[in-house]
Nucleic acid binder design. Structure first.
Lengths: 126, 126
DNA sequence: TGCGGTACTTACCTTTTGGTGAGTGAGGAG
DNA sequence: CTCCTCACTCACCAAAAGGTAAGTACCGCA
């Protein structure tokens, strides 16, 4: 049987929200799509340092199922697939902003490591 | 050697924040401590439907290490241990509020299941 | 005398998650 | 002619997360 779409039962809203963003790269995908609007598969892959193709497709499919991203396939050669945020995905991103700020604060206070790669540099990080 | 405290390297603040709240019950523990101020171990266990003792202690220890909760042990018989939020933990909770609202919205819109237990009923859920 | 409550720890097991490396099929660059 | 790019899929494996059941030491209650 195929994996059912995540559907609880949940204990509260945070529970439901965390279910949808938990996954090693989902937060980053959300942020990348937020800052760039539309991204192709390979662009996302390059933007996420260390992601495997399998995980990226897996996460993108789940996020599509969860109504967070649009997936548009162009019947071209070479193939082209574009991803962008749905309204719900954009709202989720908004809701994640305070969390990102808390995280940056925490990194500052505790002197934690941050990976800096050329793509991320220059853009305001969440 | 013991598990090192979570310390990145992180790609952004959301990354760091999600690292700290990811864990099946952490969001709920945070919320429970937020709404009640101080809770004992057994109270938390009863408040989280289905949590095992092992997971609860494990999560509480990690959260203590991460500076989210205070742990006060009373050298009494029977043993008494009280948990409460640190300043950082309280700030994290604040940062989670918009996320909780997004989650509740999602539950409403998609008609997802919610577990309702007597303890949670009556309090405003996150 | 035996049970339940207190806050755990430990050993063992299953489930979930993530990573690796290969294959696909057509076009464009060298 | 060969390699690279595109956007995947598939089979297999390793690690992490989580669950189960038992044991600990002491008390109050019946």
């Amino acid at each position: 049987m195929t994996k059912a779409p995540r559907n609880g039962p949940y204990i509260c809203g945070i529970d439901a929200a965390l279910d949808v963003v938990s996954g090693k790269w989902k937060g980053l995908v959300l942020w990348e799509l937020h800052t760039h609007g539309i991204r192709r598969f390979a662009e996302l892959r390059r933007a996420l340092p260390g992601v495997s193709e399998k995980m990226l497709t897996q996460h993108l499919r789940q996020m599509e199922e969860d109504g967070l991203v649009h997936r548009t396939v162009f019947a071209e050669v070479p193939p082209r697939v574009e991803y962008s945020l749905t309204e719900s995905g954009a709202a989720l991103n908004e809701a994640l902003l305070p969390l990102g700020e808390w995280g940056r604060d925490r990194i500052r206070r505790r002197g934690l490591d941050v990976v800096t790669d050329p793509d991320t540099a220059g853009a305001a990080a969440p």
